[in-house]
């Protein structure tokens, strides 16, 4: 049994310790907001936070994440517990189209805003270039991040 702490909740999973964290989160824990896109850390759809830092869960063996803080999109916020400013900004800017990559986009953006409260276009490009969107929502992602950055300054410490 491997002990996991996901979105503040304890889990124990009986899997091969080399199983990628992605499949444990999706198939064993049942949180399907984190997506499979490529399996080789090229597209970022599987991005989650490990101790606050963005990682590609599709190439991270589950044993690496044991007993550490894992945050998925479900833990970032929702309509009940309150949306993270990025999630609200994504709605306000009407960012998603198909929506499949957006968990990864939002988790990457959340990590960026943790360390940079006023990211420039260049900062955003650098931090977000690992997350592929086939619907071409990139211009709206830039706007969404800037809008959320402003919201975070006026209403600090909300969300995860």
């Amino acid at each position: 049994m491997i002990p996991l702490k996901i979105n503040g909740k304890e889990h124990a999973v009986d899997v091969d310790p080399t199983t990628p964290l992605l499949w444990v989160i999706r198939d064993y824990v049942g949180l399907t907001g984190t997506k499979f896109g490529c399996g080789i850390a090229q597209c970022g759809a599987c991005t989650v936070h490990l101790n606050g830092s963005p990682i590609r869960s599709c190439v991270t063996p589950v044993q690496v994440a044991a007993e550490q803080e894992i945050t998925t999109i479900e833990g970032l916020g929702d309509a009940q517990q309150g949306l993270h400013p990025l999630q609200q900004a994504w709605i306000d800017e009407q960012v998603p189209q198909c929506g499949y990559c957006q968990s990864g986009q939002i988790m990457s953006a959340a990590a960026l805003l943790e360390t940079n409260t006023s990211p420039s276009d260049a900062d955003i490009d650098r931090a977000m270039a690992g997350i592929v969107c086939r619907c071409g929502t990139y211009p709206r992602i830039r706007k969404g991040i800037k809008r959320a950055a402003i919201a975070l300054k006026t209403e600090p410490a909300s969300g995860g």
């Binding site: 907001g33 999109i73 479900e74 309509a79 949306l83 999630q87 994504w90 709605i91 929506g99 939002i106």
Partner: peptide, 9 residues
Amino acid sequence: DIPAKVDGS
């Protein structure tokens, strides 16, 4: 469809 696409649901 957008609200469900920002929180993983």
